[in-house]
């Protein structure tokens, strides 16, 4: 204290949850009698909130009592549906970027107009694609250019990347940038990802105490060298180990183009990419074990690994 010159606010724990907000999916806003309706008529008005797009001509897909309909929104925000008085069940689907909403059985009285607000929630959320590192092993010293087309934002790349990385790659994996030598190229970025239900995917449920042996086994199966494995395990191991249980799913090769496309000149004989998506889970579930695609390390070989933590979105 003494001379208090400035006060600096520490931004402490800004833990933003990207999970679904705790808003009700739908809510009755008003219920009014409308004498202009017949005694065997009633009207639902559904107001749609939370749709995040610039679409000026939104169409809503919905089902009433199991029958499917498609309707253009009035004023781009609502639809009115005539129904018989009584109980009805609705489902609303806007697009794959928003969660589908199902109502319980809702009751409407004759000659009534009930207004419901429907709160759509975005099913995409920012996911950090973490620490992809790229190793290159040419057969002889080779001038290489690596161009990345990263499908995300706020990329961190190392060494400095300007349009491309240009360097001399050595057979032992050394990447020589002038007077500096590296073992790998590094990039990281944040992208919007679709919420995927992992339960439907093949993968592995791994206990905290087995994390290291699990990773060593799978990465050996994949064909990563022990030094590559160490980079992977010292990065992800501590993160996975704090979870009692994790669900782990790998993606290989072309599947990794969704994170970034690699463009390497001269063309390597073999490019192998392996990404690990994982999430902390509370209870084990049975899933089909995933088959590990092994790499081919013949000729000029490029190996990349990365991964992402998925936050659990199911409420």
């Amino acid at each position: 204290m003494k001379n208090q010159l400035l006060i600096v606010l520490l931004v402490l724990v800004s833990s933003i949850s990207y999970g679904r907000e705790l808003l009700p999916d739908y809510m009755l806003e008003s219920s009014e009698k409308d004498e202009s309706l017949q005694r065997n008529e009633a009207v639902f008005k559904f107001l749609f909130n939370g749709i995040l797009d610039g679409n000026k001509e939104r169409t809503i897909k919905f089902s009433m009592d199991g029958k499917n309909y498609k309707e253009k929104m009035v004023k781009n925000t609502y639809v009115e549906i005539q129904a018989r008085p009584g109980k009805h069940i609705f489902q609303f689907f806007y697009d794959s970027r928003h969660y589908e909403i199902s109502t319980d059985s809702i009751l409407i009285k004759p000659q009534y107009k009930d207004v419901y607000s429907i709160h759509f929630q975005n099913s995409e959320y920012p996911v950090m694609v973490e620490k992809p590192v790229i190793y290159l092993y040419p057969e002889k010293p080779t001038e290489v250019e690596v161009k990345m087309n990263i499908k995300g934002e706020n990329a961190f790349m190392y060494p400095a990347y300007a349009d491309s990385w240009k360097f001399t790659a050595q057979p032992n994996g050394d990447l020589v940038f002038g007077d500096k030598t590296y073992n790998y190229l590094f990039w990281e970025s944040t992208r919007q990802a679709r919420n995927v239900s992992n339960e439907s995917q093949a993968g592995f449920v791994v206990e905290s105490m087995n994390v290291v042996s699990f990773l060593e086994e799978k990465l050996t199966e994949a064909g990563l060298s022990s030094t590559e494995q160490a980079d992977f395990i010292t990065y992800w191991g501590p993160r996975l180990q704090v979870n009692d249980l994790s669900f782990i799913h790998f993606e290989f090769n072309e599947r990794c183009d969704q994170y970034a496309e690699l463009n390497i000149t001269p063309k390597p004989d073999n490019i192998y990419r392996i990404y690990m998506s994982w999430e902390s889970i509370d209870t084990p579930f049975s899933c089909e074990p995933q088959t590990i695609v092994p790499m081919n390390r013949k000729g000029f070989t490029v190996v990349e690994w990365g991964g992402q933590e998925l936050t659990n979105h199911s409420l």
Partner: peptide, 14 residues
Amino acid sequence: VLVSSLSFGQVTPY
């Protein structure tokens, strides 16, 4: 409110 205070150019939490 946990903040940092600056005195003579160093930071101590307060």
